[in-house]
C-alpha cells in the first residue's frame, strides 16, 4: 500500500479512537477540527518515521532508580 494511503488509513483509525472516546462531548464542527489535528499529528509522525536509528540510540529521557536519603538496608 502506498505510504500516503497508509498515513490516511492510520489517521482514519486514530481519529475513530478519539471520536469513540470523546465524540459525545464535541460538535460536528469541533470533530472536524479534531480530525484536522489528527491529520497534522500523523504528518509529524510520518516525518519522524523517515529517520532511521539503530537499536543503540536511546530515548533522551533516562530513567534512574530513586533512592531516598534515609533508606537503611
Amino acid at each position: 500500500m502506498p505510504d500516503e494511503n497508509k498515513k490516511e488509513l492510520r489517521a482514519d483509525m486514530l481519529f475513530e479512537i478519539v471520536k469513540a472516546k470523546y465524540g459525545d462531548r464535541l460538535t460536528d464542527e469541533q470533530l472536524e477540527e479534531v480530525r484536522s489535528g489528527v491529520d497534522g499529528i500523523e504528518g509529524l509522525a510520518a516525518e519522524l518515521r523517515k529517520v532511521r536509528l539503530t537499536n543503540a540510540v536511546e530515548p533522551f529521557a533516562n530513567f534512574q532508580p530513586f533512592r531516598g536519603a534515609d533508606n537503611d538496608e
Binding site: 479534531v34 509522525a45 530515548p59
Partner: peptide
C-alpha cells in the same frame, strides 16, 4: 473556542512515535 477541542487530537499520538521523538531528540542534541 479552539481550546475546547484542541487537546483531543493530541491523545492520538502513538507511544512508539513519542519514543521515536525522544530518540531523535538525543541525536539532534
Amino acid at each position: 473556542p479552539e481550546d475546547h477541542y484542541g487537546p483531543y487530537a493530541r491523545t492520538s499520538v502513538l507511544a512508539t512515535d513519542y519514543v521515536k521523538a525522544l530518540r531523535i531528540r538525543g541525536v539532534m542534541s
